[in-house]
Amino acid sequence: MTRGPSAFNRISIGLGLAFLYAPIVLLVVYSFNSSRAVNVWAGFSTRWYETLFANDQLMAALWMTLRVGALSASIATVLGVLAAIALVRGGFFRGRAVFSGMVYAPLVMPEVITGLSLLLLFVAIGLARGFWTVVLAHATFTLSFVTVAVRARLMTFDRSLEEAAQDLGSPPWRAFFEVTLPNIAPAVAGGWALAFILSLDDLVIASFTSGPGSTTLPMRIYSAVRLGVSPEINAISTLLIGSVAMAIVIYGVVRARKTA
């Protein structure tokens, strides 16, 4: 006997989801408002999207953010997968406690601490702040998320497959690339996407570690938001939300097709 959701359960779910989605829906709706005011609906318009694409500063920041995201997510994925392998399969090697501490701490570390500490490192070694320092910083704080995403898949992966490959004469690295990696690929791709989104989203760490000429989109949005609500920001937010939602739907469809 499994009891279905009670009326109380349904109400909790309904209210919870309404709370999570109402602000996002309102933001999207008002990005199509022809008036600048947020509380008056003055008719449908796409004028804010037009001004958005004409805004060179914002477009440059978007391009910078995408490049930082793609590069840092790729570095984080390589390091994060290696860390997951060591943690799941490495047994009790020397320095394991320190290592797992360093891997999991960034998940909860307040961003102001990470940002400030990385900045001091870059200053200390005399590395000029710019594109590369943001990439290094983002790869560092997102690699933990990749590890967590891959860890679960590695734990359930049947190692006898890899051992069979090795028994058949395949060197360990080849067994890994040809047997294990294809098996954990969905989790690795998910980890990359997570790292990319986290990088796209980061304001605090980028503010500390970027220099002149490497302003990211969240930094631009933040300085605009400080001046107040603007339909232009609503418009770029809508585009970001739309592209992330689309990516997730595509990912879901591809996965559903593979398992079907």
Partner: peptide
């Protein structure tokens, strides 16, 4: 498999611990 820890360990030591 513990060898896999070398690269992320070094990375985190430089970019997480030293800072």
């Amino acid at each position: 498999s513990a060898i896999a820890a070398v690269l992320p360990f070094a990375w985190l030591a430089v970019l997480f611990l030293i800072p």
